[in-house]
């Protein structure tokens, strides 16, 4: 189901992109196994960035059919991330 897909656009091995990637993997353990995560490197696949209209990296895209949402930044604030995406969190975290 596309409703459970999170796509992260990154730019190679830049520091923010690396950070966003590890933050996303940490987040994933909180939101359950039905969520899939896809990583797109804009440097090697610029045409995908073009299709998605990506300006900033990293960008996390939640391609919800009715309410597509995007988060720009390194995803360090996990609480804001899940709130904005409207995802229920399985366990409580501080």
């Amino acid at each position: 189901m596309s409703n459970f897909l999170l796509r992260l656009y990154i730019a190679g091995r830049s520091a923010t992109s690396q950070r966003a990637q590890s933050n996303l993997y940490a987040l994933r353990s909180l939101i359950g196994p039905e969520w899939r995560v896809e990583i797109v490197d804009v440097l090697s696949e610029p045409e995908l960035a073009e299709q998605a209209g990506i300006l900033a990296t990293p960008t996390l895209s939640y391609e919800h059919p009715e309410r597509p949402r995007r988060i720009i930044g390194d995803l360090s604030d996990a609480k804001r991330v899940v709130e904005f995406l409207g995802i229920e969190v399985k366990e409580k975290y501080a």
Binding site: Y9, G12, T16, V42, I54, A56, P68, G73, D74
Partner: peptide
Amino acid sequence: SGNEELVTGDFDLIGLLAR
């Protein structure tokens, strides 16, 4: 675009540059 968007934390515009 019509997307809802949140900006939090550091970012760059390499996505734009790559395009």
